[in-house]
Design a protein around this nucleic acid. Structure first.
Lengths: 244, 244
DNA sequence: GCTAATTATTGACATAAATCAATACCGCAG
DNA sequence: CTGCGGTATTGATTTATGTCAATAATTAGC
């Protein structure tokens, strides 16, 4: 838990205690706090730590023990598993409002993935014990947490099938569509992900990824300029994703 | 939910209402009911259906809508995702006491995998609404369910990395060790899984699986006789699993 | 108990994708 | 502006694994 920095936004948040949980997680993927009453939120807020990370910093390190759950306030982070032989598998990109549980929570407290900041990241660390204490008062909150876990489960299942049963072009198409639709939500999107990162999302070498991007470019499916990618023919990418 | 049969065990259970949840899930993987009080168990038992399936029958079909959670009482079932092009991926084998949630529970009620009986199976179907009603009375139960989901999550994460980052021998070694340690829990074990099933657990073609088994046999790592497999050199298999 | 139908095994070949290697490009420190 | 470290791109080659095809071995039906 080294590498902490405190910027202006964090100071503001500490002062008002009104920023992170209460205000910032309304729109997120999980929207996990919607069921909480004010006093319950207050309880959470008192227990949390709001931390800022610089791009490149490690937020959670795989195989370390911790009981924190990460709530993203701003910025993007990559969630990945470090395999043997220096091979990583990027599981997902976490963005605004995402609630990254799983890991060791409720299961031994050992983190099963590393989370690393792609941009400057402002996030909260909430201790698991704070969460579980709330269950007694508000069981709908437990259901929300379960829903978050179930979604994650189904996401992993789908990803596993995609990675094992599709050829490279299909996997790259998946990665591009995921970034466009789920993460950046705009069409020419600019990313801080390197080709290496993209290849680790798509389960292939960086050389293979580059070649596929080149093919897509030649076929007028996408346009690329350094780290800016524009999807020109979404329908074709979708059909490639469905394995053509 | 067709193909229901009722055998003696089920009749007994219906009479006594003391069999499935209360008695049979003490030793299971999840042991999800340990936190429940008697009257809460009674509530569950009243809402459940105890069903017997014959080997080969489908218990849950992917992409159908249902709100059931499956609790295995006896027998084995395979849990698999049906991908495109008739390619399946066997995610896990469910055995005695296993609690198979995930699927659509808390997330749209659409099943994300198929469960099919490998042997005759005796199991309970419990409606999700029955479970969630219990949360209000007993929040530790929610935590147990969360733990079950978290374990499943971490299992999927590990499996995903294994399937994508290991060569075939490593994947087959994983499959054999999994069956021996987690499922059958004895050394010469006899399985009803076909080579096709084994290959779908290991993400390869049946031909490749057969070849690897043959290699293992030649190297004196295992002994096979039809559907009975004996692991002779567990240490070597473990080292192959760690990628050699 | 015998034929039909699955399932398992083995071999020859094709190919998707990794590896190795070389060069080109870019951002940054001086 | 200039050289340096990392990132990106492209090509040549190797290799792991799938596909196709033929045969053997089991299991199931009559």
């Amino acid at each position: 838990m080294e590498n902490r920095t405190t910027d202006k936004a964090c100071e503001d948040c500490t002062k008002t205690k009104n920023c992170c949980v209460k205000t910032c997680f309304i729109e997120g993927e999980a929207n996990i706090f919607q069921e909480l009453e004010s006093k319950e939120l207050e309880f959470l807020i008192n227990g949390k730590q709001q931390i800022c990370y610089k791009a490149g910093e490690t937020i959670i390190k795989q195989n370390t023990t911790s009981t924190f759950v990460v709530c993203m306030k701003s910025g993007f982070a990559k969630v990945y598993v470090e395999g043997e032989k220096n091979k990583n598998l990027v599981v997902k990109i976490a963005g605004n409002g995402d609630f990254i549980s799983g890991g060791g929570l409720f299961d031994g407290n050992v983190q099963h993935f590393t989370i690393s900041a792609l941009t400057d990241v402002n996030c909260c660390l909430i201790d698991a014990s704070t969460l579980t204490k709330l269950f007694a008062e508000n069981n709908r909150f437990a259901i929300d947490l379960l829903r978050n876990h179930a979604k994650q489960n189904n996401y992993l299942l789908t990803k596993m099938v995609n990675l094992t049963q599709k050829y490279m072009p299909g996997r790259v198409a998946d990665t591009l569509l995921y970034l466009r639709k789920e993460i950046y939500k705009q069409n020419p999107f600019t990313t801080t992900l390197t080709r290496q990162d993209l290849s680790e999302m798509s389960n292939m070498t960086k050389e293979s990824l580059v070649r596929i991007l080149h093919q897509f470019k030649n076929s007028k499916l996408i346009k690329t300029q350094q780290n800016t990618i524009e999807i020109l023919d979404e329908d074709s990418l979708l059909s490639i994703s469905k394995n053509g």
